[in-house]
Amino acid sequence: MTTMSSAEPTRRDFLYIATGAVGLVGAAATLVPLVSQMNPDASTIAAGAPIEVDLTPIAEGQVIKVFWRGKPIFISHRTKKEIDEARAVNVSSLPDPQADQDRVKKGHDQWLVLIGICTHLGCIPLAHQGNYDGWFCPCHGSQYDTSGRIRQGPAPYNLALPPYAFLTESKIVVGETQPGKEASGETQPKKEA
């Protein structure tokens, strides 16, 4: 057998390299369906489609709960008192600073739509409880105000906002950032104060 220079690949090595490369591509391609099958299937995605909520039955001061994508959504018809309380707070003193105006849609200050999952460890907070007239989480004592912002307790962030839009004055669609445009993510990006 003649000695070959190991510096440059020979024709024989090219064959080995080609075979190995094609084999690796095949192995990688085999992984695709195995990994992909664990992603949400078509029926789950369909069940997570946007839902429309009629606001007319919700009385002032009332908070209702609907489900979207398996998560509880709080829809709160705020009283003037609750709105004023939320606006009176010094934003920079908040653990998670955010103005109330940035947490509602323009011209619809009385409607607060939140994902009802405590940002601490995921329990569902209770409405109209706690020191701030907002929500109280019984698991570890987090307290949220009338804008759903964290005021006291171990939760790090304000209650998250789902994507939603007003179709009419009395109807919203949860799950679309604008009417007819389905949201891909869960929450709206926070606006800088």
């Binding site: 695709v32 369906p33 992909s36 099958q37 664990m38 992603n39 299937d41 078509a42 029926s43 789950t44």
Partner: peptide
């Protein structure tokens, strides 16, 4: 991960795999 071993759901769960699960 997608099959349900109950007489009322088994056949349908296989069809769900065939239709809805990615690459099912």
């Amino acid at each position: 991960m997608h099959y349900t071993p109950h007489v009322d759901y088994a056949f349908n769960s296989v069809e769900t795999i065939m239709r809805d699960v990615n690459y099912g």
